[in-house]
Design a protein around this nucleic acid. Structure first.
Length: 211
DNA sequence: CACCGGCCTATCGGCCGTTA
DNA sequence: TAACGGCCGATAGGCCGGTG
């Protein structure tokens, strides 16, 4: 169950580009999330222009505003801030912008707390996701446990094992191909008890940049 | 009747928004 | 501004229905 975001404009942006950052076909790092959560009143916030700008060209946005996502701008208030704050701790820089892509299990924006279930997922979008992960030049894929659970329930990712197979430094790894690594990692909106592990994982992700 | 797998629920540590 | 409670993701254990 989920609640779709009421903003028509925001929905259009997602329909046009069902991803954030660089397009998945061009990416080296692919982060798979549950849903794109926005403050309900995003259209009336001052930074909405910048959100639109970000969705039309995430790479230029990063160069121009020196942050990878509009939620990191001081003016933004609402959900999703912690996620991107933690993501930023990996230490990606502007020069990396054209290698990083975010995709979501749900192909449209949402508000509030969502509890996604199998019936919320669209088969077409899932097979699109499968292509982006497996039939692409993407080198490093990151999947949190909640996302992986849903992916398994959908039965559309037969290559995804029940549990990570091995450890790669601080990251657990689901799958290692010739030129593709699929990692399990902690969701970026974690904190507290899991924060230490999340930082260790971030460290390992940072070390992957040079490959 | 024993076992297995899918699903649900409780629990935990801890952040953060609300309230006064 | 201090205290409280609602809520989060991760995890583990338990319930239930199907199967041999």
């Amino acid at each position: 169950m989920y609640q779709k975001h009421p903003s028509k404009k925001l929905n259009e942006l997602f329909q046009e580009k069902p991803y954030q950052g660089v397009s998945p076909e061009k990416a080296k790092f692919l982060f798979v999330g549950l849903d794109a959560n926005y403050a309900e009143n995003i259209e009336s916030q001052n930074i909405f222009d910048k959100v639109v700008e970000y969705h039309s060209d995430g790479v230029s946005f990063w160069q121009k505003y020196k942050v990878h996502h509009p939620f990191l701008l001081n003016e933004y208030r609402g959900d999703g801030k912690k996620y991107h704050k933690n993501f930023a701790r990996i230490g990606f820089q502007e020069k990396d912008a054209n290698s990083i892509s975010f995709i979501e299990i749900l192909p449209f924006p949402t508000v509030g707390r969502n509890k996604l279930e199998k019936s919320d997922l669209s088969g077409n979008h899932l097979s699109q996701i499968n292509d982006w992960i497996m039939n692409s030049d993407v080198k490093f894929v990151f999947i949190s446990s909640g996302v992986a659970n849903l992916m398994r329930k959908s039965k559309q990712f037969s290559w995804l094992p029940e549990k990570p197979k091995e450890q790669f430094k601080n990251l657990r790894m689901y799958r290692q191909g010739e030129n593709k690594f699929v990692f399990s990692h902690l969701h970026f909106s974690n904190y507290g008890k899991f924060e230490k592990q999340m930082l260790l994982e971030a460290e390992t992700i940072r070390e992957l940049i040079k490959y």
